[in-house]
């Protein structure tokens, strides 16, 4: 029982960065842009937060940090970093109509490089003997949980034991889902992604919608990186530590058939699949089976992708103009 509770807790913690990433990507894709730069953006979101908090800790000393500032500074620097990434992507794909796949991949190369470069540089500045930056003090502030969580037994542990960013992730996903399906803005956004010519004819500023949603999507995805380093990794940045979670976030978008609400559950599920190898042992199979278990999220995603394309249910398809740039005078 305790093991199950612990598993679910860990699954949720694994799921939160994925949820940020997939919510951001869902918004972006709904505007018709397949942003393969998400993994890079999440790296940048993480390192920008690390940079902010690193210099803050350096300045005042780890012992004297103000909990509020310790949270707000990395939060803002992280958002700024991912916003700039989003702007680069938008400028190239929306304004200059560059190929989205190539731009996205270049952005990922750049972002991962950016993260590891500054991570490495900070490690050098900090003079740490380990290949990592440790920001335990800041992390502690990020990890503040509700005081009564542990007194509520299993329910408390399952529902209330997480840090605030985890709840932010869920709230953001819920808000995104609400906006997409129940507001005028959402209607317009979906129209832009489905059929930009129609949206344009209806008087919707297509490029503005693309810019704003892609940038908001980037900022949200970047928070996933920040959560990972500040909370999941307890404030320890090590180069490459974030791994391929960004691509997993892209996979969740398909799995969740472009719905943020489903993405919440999908992220936790994928978080669980990501770590399930620690909890199951199949008789006759050793530790190596873990690696096969790690395949599960991708396999499941593929199956969903195949089934949705076979069933041709219109609502489960990718946005119709996904990946195509729009030019009004193309005839």
């Amino acid at each position: 029982m305790t093991m199950l509770v612990q598993f679910i807790q860990r699954a949720v913690m694994q799921g939160v960065p994925l949820l940020f990433g997939s919510t951001g990507e869902i918004l972006t894709e709904k505007s018709g842009h397949l942003n393969l730069g998400i993994p890079g953006i999440m790296y940048v979101g993480a390192i920008s937060g690390v940079i902010g908090s690193f210099f803050y800790e350096e300045k005042v000393g780890a012992a004297n940090i103000n909990p509020f500032l310790a949270v707000i500074i990395p939060l803002l620097t992280s958002m700024l970093g991912s916003l700039i990434m989003g702007l680069i992507y938008c400028f190239l794909t929306v304004s200059l109509r560059a190929n989205q796949n190539v731009t996205g991949l270049a952005l990922t190369t750049f972002g991962v490089g950016f993260g590891n470069f500054f991570g490495g540089s900070l490690i050098k500045i900090s003079g740490s003997s380990m290949p990592a930056i440790t920001l335990s003090a800041t992390s502690k502030c990020f990890k503040t949980t509700l005081p009564f969580a542990n007194s509520l037994g299993v329910i408390g542990k399952l529902l209330f034991s997480y840090s605030f960013l985890a709840y932010v992730a869920i709230v953001v996903a819920l808000i995104a889902g609400y906006i997409l399906n129940h507001t005028r803005t959402g209607l317009h956004l979906r129209a832009v992604g489905e059929n930009p010519a129609t949206a344009d004819a209806a008087g919707i500023n297509v490029n503005r919608y693309k810019y704003v949603t892609t940038c908001i999507g980037s900022v949200i995805a970047g928070l996933g990186g920040l959560y990972y380093v500040m909370d999941y990794a307890s404030g320890i940045w090590s180069n490459g530590g974030f791994g391929d979670r960004g691509w997993l976030a892209v996979a969740i978008v398909i799995f969740a058939i472009w719905r943020p609400n489903i993405a919440i559950l999908a992220s936790i599920l994928f978080g669980g699949l990501f770590i399930i190898y620690n909890y199951v042992s199949i008789p006759g199979m050793g530790i190596e089976a873990q690696e096969l278990f790690k395949m599960l999220p991708y396999l499941v995603t593929l199956i969903v992708l195949i089934i949705t394309s076979m069933r041709e249910k219109r609502e489960s398809q990718p946005p119709q103009s996904l990946g195509l740039s729009y030019f009004r005078e193309d005839r």
């Binding site: 400028f91 200059l96 109509r97 270049a106 991962v112 490089g113 470069f117 991570g119 540089s121």
Partner: peptide
């Protein structure tokens, strides 16, 4: 004494510029 990932940043910037230039050709 910089990190080796420096090269990814450089590669990224160069590619951004080349991708962007296609617009001015088309």
């Amino acid at each position: 004494g910089l990190n080796a990932s420096f090269s990814d940043i450089i590669t990224g910037i160069i590619i951004f510029f080349i991708i962007g230039s296609e617009f001015f050709i088309n």
